[in-house]
Design a binder for these strands. Structure first.
Lengths: 333, 333
DNA sequence: CTGAAAGCGCTTACAG
DNA sequence: CTGAAAGCGCTTACAG
């Protein structure tokens, strides 16, 4: 067992600087109201003692935890990581700190993490997607925390939503495919709720252009690079052969290109490929990959902007913030 | 501004169950000592009020924050993510919660995040690498937190270290390259401290086999996939032409294979390639990539095991825990 | 500009 | 098995 060390507390600093604890507290939280000479003595005492204020105790007294919960399904190969990174970096600048919850995919685990966040009295709870379970919704609502659902634009957000329209993405991709003159798209879709929304929207738009229903293949998540192999085989067996593969992620698109190489096929001459997510690799692969750019970092920054507004007492003008997306046409399609 | 909601507190539950606050507290923290009939009334009162204990207040009273700080340079494309994920998942099972600090690369930022962790009285601070700055070391030491340096085996850890030997990795790769009969390795190295350790160890072992000093190229981090293009060009201009490229990451190895494809070269027939990290893609690329497997998740689990031992009052037997690594020979070399 | 005092929501010896 | 009371380390009206 480690020996318990003694951490100096407010009182130790106060005694040393010959002021009251209240004044030392003010020195930290509202320095402009303490006299210069007093401040100087306090500064010295802090240095001598190595005092680090206990923000947990402070949070209890001021009823501001300065904790923000970030709840995401996973982190290992996550498309949310840019958002998490932007969030965490911005939050520290506001004296806030991120607590991380990995929720997996079940609502039950999600519930546990929401409880954990509420138990720490997190000031805000940021979720990677919209919450549909009504029990969880009301739990979040009653928590008093700012709740931010990201990466989508739910019609009825719990509190605030920051994201983009998956319906619009699907339709945009369809129009792109039509405009480029492709005629036989093959959709490879990870079976996550939002991928399916994009797929359905693609199909609706495609039919609007009076084309036949595209062929498709649905993959159980987690979608791995290795799925590309089976998808490629599937695509090659289709009659007629598809002229473009629309993938629900850049990972898949990338894998398809590797498979094409391995099979001696040329992209996009023999078969075109579209991804989603605009991961770094999309711009760097050979050929570069046509994809949909989502500014994950911006989602994080907009979320923090909402928190800042609330902290400043301004009421948010919008409950749903659309950060948009951008179809980036490159070499692969 | 959101309307402040009223959150029930211990007293509300106690009043409703007609017991003292102390008993409700015991119901949560030490249920075996409260009478069944009492427990039943408390359970009911909790349900009726929707009470969620304030763990922050509880932590202050019990002087256990139940917070564990995870400090990593970044998360967006991080090799540490498996470790973070394993940590976060294991910690919740112990009632602990992870706070996330993104430290960037400067010691100054690192210092801020260490302060933030100490200010929350984190019970443990887990770092992605060894700390060399002596100011930071003593700050960590004085904090009283369990400090775990990961992904390396420092000779003199601050407290506990969990990782593997980069010296051993470099030497192992060199022996592999020798044994497979390659004669002209080209080292492509991201200029991070530990990549350089592996490189130096490779070179030392290589020379021990009385070979000429290998050619090498050092890349300023962050190492991007796109660097592969320049590396490939560089490799092709070397005379004599290298027969194997040893990369400091799978990302680079992967990029080199794509470049090889694009140039019409065959891997490993024309040029062999070795990576590092054993990312998922290494096993799935065509050709599959020879790499060094580091069990990032295991590092996380071992770190939590240390925390559990300490929580149970056992003293740790080892200060440095070697989780090892595994050179995985595949098709690319 | 500063201090004394009450209080944030819990936990935990202590006593019974 | 349970309660009354003190205390965890801060903040913040209130009064001066």
């Amino acid at each position: 067992m480690k020996p318990k060390v003694y951490l100096p507390k407010l009182e130790d600093v106060a005694a040393r600087a010959r002021v009251s604890a209240a004044t030392v507290s003010r020195f930290h939280n509202n320095p402009s109201i303490v006299a210069d000479s007093t401040a100087e003595r306090i500064r010295k005492a802090i240095l001598e003692t190595g005092y680090v204020p206990d923000l947990i105790a402070g949070g209890l007294a001021s009823r501001r935890s300065r904790l923000v919960a970030i709840l995401v399904p996973e982190i290992a190969h996550s498309i949310f990581n840019d958002t998490i990174e932007a969030l965490a970096s911005e939050l520290v600048r506001d004296g806030l700190i991120a607590i991380l919850g990995l929720t997996g995919k079940s609502d039950q685990d999600m519930g546990k993490h929401i409880d954990a966040a509420i138990a720490r009295r997190a000031e805000a709870i940021i979720l990677s997607g919209p919450v549909t379970n009504s029990g969880l919704r009301s739990k979040l609502q009653k928590s008093g925390a700012t709740v931010i659902e990201t990466w989508d634009l739910p019609a009825n957000p719990i509190d605030i939503a920051v994201g983009f329209s998956h319906v619009a993405v699907g339709a945009d991709i369809a129009r792109f495919v039509v405009n480029r003159g492709y005629r036989r798209p093959f959709l490879v879709v990870g079976a996550s709720p939002r991928s399916l929304v994009r797929r359905d929207s693609f199909i609706a738009e495609w039919k609007r252009n009076s084309r036949a229903r595209p062929t498709q293949l649905t993959i159980e998540p987690p979608v791995l690079y290795s799925h590309a192999r089976a998808c490629w085989r599937h695509a090659m067996e289709l009659k007629p052969r598809p002229d473009i593969v629309v993938c629900s992620s850049d990972l898949l698109a990338h894998g398809m290109i590797v498979e094409a190489y391995a099979a001696g096929a040329k992209v996009p001459q023999d078969i075109a490929i579209v991804g989603f997510g605009n991961m770094a690799i999309a711009g760097e692969m050979r050929p570069t990959i046509t994809s949909v750019d989502l500014d994950g970092a911006r989602i994080g920054r907009e979320a923090v902007a909402v928190l800042r507004k609330r902290a400043a007492g301004q009421k948010s003008d919008r409950r749903v913030i659309d950060v948009g997306f951008r179809l980036v046409a490159r070499e692969s399609a």
